[in-house]
């Protein structure tokens, strides 16, 4: 199937080196513990790569990695998180050509592919700038009627399970960037028809000073991975990027186990899905009281 490989436009006398697409968990690139694979297909239905078909145990391991990374990531300064998000943008920009090729191989028109990569880079830059600002905009000092200093701040929910949208790069970055900008760590289920930008995005993250475990990317099938993730009691929130109401409904039912917070993003076009509310929807409000006296 080398003829269909996206990077296959090499000289005829040289055999191209093909990439094995693996998942990204805890800062490493393992294969699925299950040993299973699926095929990523081109627009005409021909296979272009093998991808991991992750199992519920891979979900479990990814949650473990995300939990282990969460306190440390949330404990970074907002400035540092901003720099790291900006670094992701830098790395993605540098790999623009690769992602355009991947998108094109998945069926995106070449000029649209270029626009999508640029938009994804810009989205990361946008959220990089929010890390040290959303708290200022959305937290409050509350003028209570007693002698207390009272303030409400936003804290990350913790570990967020993300069902990645069909939009393979812009949607992916639009979902993940606000989650991690606010100090959450994520387990991202890539179940759409174009998984290769996501697996390669793991490489971008890995070279961007993002601590291992902050973003974990699993490929596979929604019907195998979503329920265990949605039911997992050590996951605090779900970001369900799917226009299918049945998917949202079944995940929401699983989420009841530990009352996960659930945000649903049914968008198919992610061009305008950008606002600080994408961050705050994955935050908790904490109100703290302290006496004022001498």
């Amino acid at each position: 199937m080398s003829e269909q490989r996206p990077a296959g436009a090499a000289a005829a006398d040289r055999l191209p080196v093909l990439k094995t697409h693996k998942v990204y968990v805890g800062g490493r690139f393992p294969r699925s513990e299950s040993g299973r694979f699926d095929r990523a297909l081109g627009p005409d239905g021909t296979p272009i790569a093998n991808i991991c078909r992750c199992s519920r145990k891979d979900v479990r391991d990814a949650v473990t990695a995300a939990r282990a990374a969460q306190a440390g990531w949330a404990g970074r300064t907002a400035y540092n998180r901003g720099q790291i998000l900006y670094r992701i943008a830098e790395m993605l920009e540098g790999r623009s050509a690769q992602f355009e090729t991947l998108l094109a191989a998945g069926g995106t028109a070449p000029d649209e592919a270029a626009i999508e990569v640029q938009a994804a880079v810009d989205r990361l830059v946008h959220y990089a700038g929010w890390t040290d600002k959303f708290q200022q905009v959305f937290s409050s000092v509350n003028p209570v009627a007693t002698s207390h200093f009272n303030f409400s701040i936003l804290e990350p929910m913790g570990v967020i399970g993300v069902l990645a949208p069909e939009s393979p790069l812009l949607g992916l970055t639009s979902a993940v960037a606000p989650a991690i900008a606010g100090g959450n760590t994520t387990v991202v289920l890539v179940t759409g028809s174009q998984p290769l930008p996501a697996t390669t995005f793991g490489e971008v993250l890995n070279s961007s000073d993002v601590p291992g475990g902050v973003v974990n990317v699993l490929t596979g099938r929604s019907d195998e991975m979503l329920a265990p993730l949605a039911a997992h009691r050590d996951v605090d929130g779900l970001l369900l990027c799917s226009p299918d109401p049945d998917v949202a409904r079944s995940a929401e039912i699983e989420a009841v186990h530990n009352l996960k917070r659930v945000a649903v993003r049914p968008h198919e076009d992610w061009t305008d899905v950008q606002s600080p509310y994408e961050i705050t929807d994955l935050q908790e409000v904490k109100t703290t009281w302290h006496p004022i006296g001498s």
Partner: peptide, 12 residues
């Protein structure tokens, strides 16, 4: 969601 430091059960 609500933390009381050196006080408790305050509401406003």
């Amino acid at each position: 969601g609500v933390l009381w430091a050196n006080t408790y059960n305050k509401f406003d």
